[in-house]
C-alpha cells in the first residue's frame, strides 16, 4: 500500500478521472472548433486558392490530406507507445485508456494516408499502387496498428489487455525506425531513382500555409475524437464497476 501511494504522488493532475472529466468538458468545444476551422480553411486554401503545380496539375492537391495523415499515423503510434510506457511503469490507468483509444484513430489516419497515396499514384504513375518506400512503411505501420487492436480485444480482462498491448506497442515503436530504414534500403535496391518521390516537387511557400493548417486541424481533430473516446471509456468502466458492485463482487 505504501509503495503504491508513493507512486501515485507523482502523477500528472489529469490522472484523476474526475479532473479529467471536468478538464475535458471545458476544453472540448475549443479543440472541436479549432479542428473544424483549420480543416475548412486548409481545404479552401489548398484546393481552391493555391495555384496548380506545373508538373502534376491539380493532382498534387491530394498532398494536403495525404501528408498530414501520414504524419498523424506516425505521431499517434508514438503517443500510444509513450502512454503505454507510462501505463506500464506507473500503472497509470488513464494512460492505458489513451493508448487504447488512440489506436483506432491512428489506424484510420494510416489507412487514409495509404488510400490517398494510392489515389495519387494513379495520375502520377498510372497505377493504383506502387511499392514506394513511404507507402510500404505506412502499410507495415497499419499492420502494427491492427496487431495492437486485435491483441487488446483478445483479452477478456481490460487491464491485462492494456498491459499486453502496451508491451506490443513498445516493441513496435522500437521496431518502427528499423522498418522505415529497411524499407528505404529495399526501395533503393530495387528501384533505382527513375521514379520521383511521391512528394510535391518543391514546397512552394504558398503550399506551406494550407499544409500547416491541415496538420493543426488533424491534430485538433485527433484531440477531439480522443476526448470523446476517453469519456466513453471512463463511463463504460464506471458502468462495469457499478455492475460488479451490484452482483456483490
Amino acid at each position: 500500500m505504501v509503495k503504491r501511494t508513493k507512486k501515485r504522488a507523482g502523477w500528472h493532475f489529469l490522472a484523476n478521472p474526475a479532473r479529467f472529466m471536468r478538464f475535458s468538458r471545458v476544453i472540448f468545444p475549443w479543440v472541436a472548433g479549432l479542428s473544424v476551422l483549420t480543416i475548412v480553411a486548409g481545404l479552401v486554401l489548398g484546393l481552391g486558392v493555391v495555384p496548380p503545380d506545373y508538373q502534376q496539375g491539380d493532382a498534387y492537391r491530394i498532398m494536403f490530406v495525404h501528408v498530414p495523415s501520414a504524419w498523424m499515423g506516425l505521431f499517434i503510434y508514438g503517443v500510444m507507445a509513450v502512454s503505454s510506457a507510462v501505463g506500464f511503469i506507473w500503472r497509470h490507468p488513464l494512460a492505458d485508456l489513451v493508448a487504447k483509444s488512440s489506436a483506432p484513430i491512428g489506424a484510420c489516419f494510416t489507412f487514409i494516408c495509404l488510400f490517398t497515396g494510392s489515389l495519387w499514384g494513379e495520375p502520377m504513375w498510372g497505377t493504383w499502387w506502387v511499392w514506394d518506400a513511404r507507402l510500404t512503411s505506412m502499410l507495415v505501420l497499419l499492420f502494427l496498428y491492427l496487431g495492437y487492436i486485435a491483441l487488446h480485444a483478445a483479452y477478456q480482462d481490460p487491464t491485462k489487455g492494456a498491459r499486453a498491448a502496451g508491451i506490443l506497442a513498445l516493441v513496435g515503436v522500437i521496431n518502427l525506425p528499423i522498418v522505415k530504414y529497411s524499407v528505404n534500403w529495399w526501395n533503393t535496391l530495387h528501384q533505382p531513382a527513375t521514379i520521383s518521390k511521391i512528394d510535391a516537387p518543391s514546397i512552394d511557400p504558398t503550399m506551406a500555409a494550407p499544409l500547416m493548417l491541415m496538420i493543426v486541424g488533424f491534430m485538433a481533430y485527433y484531440a477531439t475524437v480522443l476526448i470523446i473516446r476517453l469519456r466513453a471509456e471512463i463511463a463504460s468502466r464506471r458502468i462495469r464497476n457499478l455492475r460488479l458492485a451490484q452482483v456483490g463482487a
Binding site: 478521472p17 490507468p93 487491464t159 464506471r238
Partner: peptide
C-alpha cells in the same frame, strides 16, 4: 465484499 473500496473509474482497489 465490504472490506475493500473499489475505485469506480479504474477498478483499482484499496
Amino acid at each position: 465484499a465490504g472490506v475493500v473500496a473499489v475505485d469506480e473509474m479504474t477498478g483499482s482497489v484499496r
